[in-house]
Design a protein around this nucleic acid. Structure first.
Length: 112
DNA sequence: AATCTGACGGGCA
DNA sequence: GTGCCCGCCAGAT
């Protein structure tokens, strides 16, 4: 059947939903969300989806696979992301979350 | 219409 | 550890 769908940015809202599931005091990565959503979604797609994250999505809890705050420039100010994370109890040095593996939250491990 | 880029990540030299 | 390449999709120029 010929689907008349032109844009499939259905995954965009999926990304936002998963991001909302990240618990307070925890963080996840773009790649983890991508893997959870399926192999056709890559970390880069997740990053792209986050540029339009609606209010209520804790975008600051999504960092790259090394725990670095690579998306901080997309917040109101470049230090907003770090501020929010520190407020949630995280330790950040040089835009990098310390003990990242201990606060990392993996959606695939929780649901899949 | 074609090309480059982007909040990324894994693999390989 | 460093550096380059590939993949995936949509938007911008």
């Amino acid at each position: 059947m010929q689907s008349t769908e032109k844009t499939n940015h259905n995954f965009v809202s999926d990304v936002h939903e998963v991001a909302k599931l990240v618990p307070y005091g925890r963080v996840t990565s773009y790649g983890a969300i991508a893997h959870y959503l399926g192999s056709r979604i890559t970390a880069r797609m997740v990053g792209w989806a986050m540029h339009a994250c609606p209010r209520g999505v804790p975008a600051h809890r999504v960092v790259n696979s090394k725990g670095e705050l690579t998306g901080k420039h997309h917040f109101k100010t470049p230090d907003t992301m770090q501020k929010l994370l520190e407020k949630e109890g995280h330790r950040i040095v040089a835009d990098k979350i310390l003990q990242f593996s201990e606060v990392f939250w993996n959606p695939s491990a929780e649901f899949g």
